[in-house]
Computed example of a mutant assay.
Amino acid sequence: MIDARLGPQSAAAEPDPPRTRQSIDVYDISLAGDDPAALIRLLVMLRRRRCAVLEIQFQARDLHRPGHLTLCVQPSIGATHTVATWLAAHVDVLDVRKR
């Protein structure tokens, strides 16, 4: 819809479609490096792909292990099998394991 006063509306402003299938997946993710923005970048990527992040557990990197993230995600419809691939391809991720 175009409003002459506002101009064209962005597709990003549209609400998420209702979720009819309630699949929930849990991912264990090892993070590369110690960039504090890595967590934000992962969450933004999932949000842009219309996935709902339901729970997050984060452990910062220390001398003996990389940073670790556990995500509980409700994928968008049709994306159930691609979330692990999206996460694994991210520059801040070393390893992804689905529970």
Score class of each variant (00 low, 15 high):
residue 16 D to H: 11
residue 11 A to C: 04
residue 12 A to W: 09
residue 88 A to Y: 01
residue 94 L to A: 09
residue 8 P to V: 08
residue 99 R to E: 09
residue 88 A to L: 10
residue 92 D to G: 02
residue 12 A to P: 00
residue 95 D to P: 00
residue 26 V to M: 06
residue 10 S to Y: 02
residue 43 L to E: 08
residue 9 Q to G: 13
residue 92 D to V: 03
residue 19 R to K: 12
residue 32 A to H: 10
residue 23 S to D: 14
residue 62 D to I: 02
residue 20 T to K: 04
residue 29 I to E: 00
residue 64 H to T: 15
residue 84 A to T: 06
residue 74 Q to S: 04
residue 40 I to R: 11
residue 63 L to Y: 13
residue 24 I to C: 10
residue 86 W to Q: 04
residue 33 G to E: 06
residue 19 R to C: 03
residue 9 Q to T: 13
residue 66 P to E: 11
residue 83 V to L: 08
residue 62 D to Y: 00
residue 47 R to E: 15
residue 23 S to Q: 13
residue 66 P to N: 12
residue 55 E to V: 07
residue 67 G to D: 05
residue 2 I to S: 11
residue 67 G to H: 04
residue 99 R to C: 09
residue 19 R to V: 11
residue 93 V to P: 04
residue 35 D to M: 00
residue 67 G to Q: 05
residue 49 R to P: 03
residue 62 D to A: 02
residue 18 P to F: 03
residue 75 P to G: 02
residue 26 V to P: 01
residue 21 R to W: 04
residue 4 A to P: 12
residue 36 P to Y: 05
residue 93 V to W: 03
residue 74 Q to A: 06
residue 2 I to A: 12
residue 55 E to I: 03
residue 68 H to Q: 14
residue 87 L to I: 03
residue 88 A to I: 06
residue 36 P to M: 06
residue 93 V to G: 06
residue 14 E to F: 10
residue 65 R to D: 08
residue 90 H to K: 02
residue 5 R to I: 11
residue 17 P to Q: 09
residue 64 H to P: 01
residue 68 H to E: 11
residue 31 L to F: 01
residue 46 L to W: 04
residue 89 A to V: 00
residue 7 G to R: 00
residue 26 V to S: 10
residue 91 V to K: 11
residue 48 R to M: 12
residue 70 T to K: 11
residue 98 K to H: 13
residue 49 R to Y: 08
residue 52 A to W: 07
residue 57 Q to S: 12
residue 28 D to G: 13
residue 17 P to L: 13
residue 81 H to G: 15
residue 22 Q to R: 15
residue 10 S to N: 06
residue 8 P to T: 07
residue 72 C to D: 02
residue 47 R to S: 14
residue 22 Q to S: 15
residue 86 W to G: 01
residue 73 V to W: 00
residue 86 W to F: 07
residue 87 L to C: 03
residue 58 F to D: 00
residue 38 A to S: 11
residue 67 G to V: 07
residue 15 P to K: 01
residue 23 S to T: 15
residue 71 L to K: 01
residue 48 R to C: 10
residue 37 A to L: 14
residue 41 R to G: 08
residue 48 R to V: 08
residue 64 H to N: 13
residue 33 G to L: 06
residue 77 I to G: 06
residue 59 Q to T: 13
residue 81 H to S: 14
residue 49 R to K: 13
residue 63 L to V: 14
residue 54 L to K: 08
residue 57 Q to G: 08
residue 5 R to Q: 14
residue 59 Q to N: 09
residue 15 P to T: 03
residue 78 G to D: 05
residue 62 D to F: 03
residue 55 E to G: 13
residue 3 D to F: 06
residue 54 L to D: 04
residue 84 A to Q: 10
residue 66 P to L: 09
residue 16 D to M: 14
residue 54 L to I: 07
residue 11 A to Y: 05
residue 76 S to P: 01
residue 87 L to W: 00
residue 29 I to K: 00
residue 72 C to R: 14
residue 35 D to L: 02
residue 25 D to G: 02
residue 18 P to A: 05
residue 83 V to C: 07
residue 86 W to Y: 08
residue 84 A to S: 13
